[in-house]
Computed example of a mutant assay.
Amino acid sequence: MSRTGRPKAPLELTEEERAQLLRWARRRKSSQALALRSRIVLGCAEGLTNKEVAALEKVSAPTVGKWRTRFVEHRLDGLSDEARPGRPPTISAEQIEDVVVATLESTPLNATHWSRAKMAQRSGLSKSTIGRIWRAFDLQPHREDGFKLSNDALFVEKVYDVVGLYLNPPEAAVVLCVDEKSQVQALARSQPAFPMMPGMPEKRTHDYVRHGTTSLFAAFNTADGTVISSLHRKHRAIEFKKFLAKIDDQVPAELEVHLVCDNYGTHKHPSIKKWLAAHPRFHMHFTPTYSSWLNQVERFFAYVTADLLQRSDHRSVQALEGDIRKWVKAWNEDPKPFIWTKTAEQILDSLGRLLQRTTGAGH
């Protein structure tokens, strides 16, 4: 006779309880822990087993059992965290909720975001208390991050295409991530830098004189990390065609060439299309719009910037280009390929969760 396990207490919801749980689960600015517990209870109420709910919510079965039991015993009150031993709190849950909701859903008068002083003045609590509440809920009103969501109609297809090249590169072929770092400036500081000393960082003047610009064209080999590069004073289609010719010259003739590029106009210029038609071993793969993070050469450019350009001091474009050539040569003597681990499915799932949390939109 098969084992059925310990019988579970039935979990049935009133209309009021179901409505409240749905609000907690769907309200994008509520506590994520409370939202998870609400989804667990809703899943159990639909007749799913603990294992099925655990798989759906990506938690352990004991976690589902814990919150199922807590709800059966204490109903909605059972989904809050249990009181811990120690001095009774001097701030009520209502005050904490008021601070959190106000931080997330409002702005102070004549300001774009809350400070501890402004929230303390509004709530009547001390600035240190506001700081503790914000730390507990991981709220940082003074910080912001930038983002740009792709509006590419072929976003999913392009993600699968590019990531597929990284994870399963074709045989008898080379995969090159290609782009231009344009408008690299030759900047001469107005005064010599003060060197770093114990207790004092290096000091540089904030002002400088511009001595012209150059553009770094780079093709990053995803297999071994080597880079084919060129420097041009402009970055038009004619310069890009010259760079393609250099790639064609340096990549062995028996290999197919797969290029990962962004959607910059020069990469799709009629003259480039004509050149590609005359060189059938070249295959273009375009990243989605606003998705330069998919192109591995951008990480290479970040190294160039951090190691060389960020503190550069050049009196001419020629001097700047000379240093860039030396830097790339040193890189190729000890190349560092980037190990891509995310599958296309993992990337799309991650973006879906971000959209769900920030906009309430579905996957």
Rank of each mutant, 00 (worst) to 15 (best):
V72Y: 02
D323S: 12
T4L: 09
S128D: 12
H74F: 10
R135T: 08
K246T: 11
P252L: 07
T358G: 07
I40F: 09
Q356M: 05
T4S: 15
H211P: 09
P252Y: 09
S126Q: 07
G5E: 00
N295Q: 10
D152C: 08
H258A: 04
K58V: 12
S126H: 12
N221Y: 08
T90F: 14
A111I: 05
H269S: 12
W293G: 06
G199I: 09
M196D: 12
T305I: 07
V99K: 00
E105W: 10
A237L: 07
R281N: 09
A111P: 05
K158I: 03
G5N: 13
E256R: 05
A188P: 00
G360S: 02
P141M: 09
F338S: 09
L76R: 01
I247D: 07
E46Y: 14
P89Y: 01
G78P: 02
D349C: 13
H211Q: 13
P337S: 01
C44D: 03
Y208T: 12
H267T: 03
E202T: 03
V64T: 05
V53P: 11
A35Q: 10
S2V: 12
T341M: 15
H363Q: 15
S92G: 14
A102K: 06
A278Y: 02
F301Q: 10
C177V: 05
I247Q: 05
G47W: 06
A361H: 12
A219R: 02
R70I: 14
Y290S: 14
T129E: 04
L231Y: 02
A19V: 04
S312Y: 01
R210G: 11
Y303M: 11
W67H: 07
M200V: 14
Q310N: 15
K242E: 14
R39W: 07
S106W: 08
S80W: 10
V159K: 00
H363P: 09
P335L: 08
P198M: 04
W340C: 01
R210K: 14
V53R: 02
R6G: 04
K203N: 10
R236I: 00
V257H: 01
D179Q: 11
I247F: 12
H267V: 05
S291Y: 01
F243S: 02
D145I: 07
I91N: 05
L36N: 03
V156S: 13
